[in-house]
Design a protein around this nucleic acid. Sequence first.
DNA 1: TTAGGCCATTACGTAAGGGGAGAGTCAAAT
DNA 2: ATTTGACTCTCCCCTTACGTAATGGCCTAA
Lengths: 251, 251
Amino acid sequence: MEKYTVSLVARISGVTVRTLQHYDKIGLLKPAERARSGYRYYGKDELYRLQQILFFKELGFSLKKILHILDEPDFDLGKALEFQKNELQKRKARLDELLVTIDKTIKQIKKEKTMVTDKELYEGFSEEEISAWKKEIDEKYDQEVVAESYQNIKKMSKSDFNEVKEEQENVAKELALLMDQPVDSDKVQALIRRHHTNNERFYKTNAAVYKGLADMYVSDLRFTEFYDNYKPGLAKFIRDAMHHFADNSLK
Amino acid sequence: MEKYTVSLVARISGVTVRTLQHYDKIGLLKPAERARSGYRYYGKDELYRLQQILFFKELGFSLKKILHILDEPDFDLGKALEFQKNELQKRKARLDELLVTIDKTIKQIKKEKTMVTDKELYEGFSEEEISAWKKEIDEKYDQEVVAESYQNIKKMSKSDFNEVKEEQENVAKELALLMDQPVDSDKVQALIRRHHTNNERFYKTNAAVYKGLADMYVSDLRFTEFYDNYKPGLAKFIRDAMHHFADNSLK
DNA sequence: TTAGGCCATTACGTAAGGGGAGAGTCAAAT
DNA sequence: ATTTGACTCTCCCCTTACGTAATGGCCTAA
């Protein structure tokens, strides 16, 4: 019978010597024989077993599970495979989400750079406010929509800008007084309509975009804080009201 | 200024206390203040920073990289994001491959009853191994299909069995002499036809099953060895020839 | 003052090896 | 027969991002 040393097995199979030692230690792949010197010698059977190990490893099984698969005849491989498939699909779905997020972020980053040159537009506003507005505009919107809103903003004078900002604050204050009412009440929705109309001086907002903006009110701590400053819970209240408005009065 | 204790921050952000302690230790998120008692107290700024940390973590960045992103103003975030995106895409592509593989494997498992007879054909497998497999098949797979193939085998006498085995070996030997010819040559395909006909004494094989069997000749080390014993490379040669046969003469 | 709930640090464990130190071994060339 | 150089051995620490005790101090309300 042939004897394969660790490095030979390593070369044949593509794993490292260290890996073979590791597999030996955890009992996943024991050499066929050990010399007095301690040297490991493998045979054909071990090569075949290693082939199986690597196959299941490819599929994402842990070494512990592989040990079970190979050493327990009662192991339900079919079930394990279905389970593993499910896991892989979940991971893939998650990766898809992340890719969407990262793409959005990349776009935002690029826009942020160009915005720096337009700094003058925001002069007179606090650092917080500026970054907040930048976020509001950039973060959640499609490229085209943003491009359009950009045009609008550039055409606005500073006083125009101030006007819009004040109006939004007024709406917020009034909403704070209506927090005991349901979000779909006429009064609340009327205020949201003001909010929406005012916001459109900046950029067009369809239902989805508007709801995205709403979500940001609670997902971005700085916005949340800004609104909850008027009254705790206001941010969430406005969000819900905006969602209702978007669902029923926009489309 | 508000002070947030560890558990408070934990509840707000959704991470565990241990995580906050960990982030403190590695310098990723230091509390705003430390009491004489050692208690950690966080402020708004830290909450916002934590929010950012969690965002980048979502994207799959390591904590070390996040530290760079947040603390080095010169850090090229755009580049890092592109890189990360690339990584995610690679992972996704890999997952796609694995999903294909695992699907194949699941299918193959169900067909494994076919292979068992083949294994019996080419001895060299331990008794326990075989009986374990039989048990597995009996317990888990389609009753009818299994029944059929078993019927065939059970009806065969030992000498019949040996006949089939010898014939397969003869075919293999003859094929070994034709390895310099293309797999689609008439001579080779004629031998494959013999192989296929002979094999059908065991069980019915449509194109897909036959190709599955072919693949096993190279994917299972024990089969590979058996055939390459006649001549190195024979296993692959037979596989290709069987594929050609299945594609052109079966369906 | 005491109970209970928070909080702290220390330290070991995880999965799958990587990397290196220090020492022994093998096989071929001298 | 010896030397050389490649190979191998066994520890042991390192990595990620925390989890999980163990042990003991701190805070606050009854």
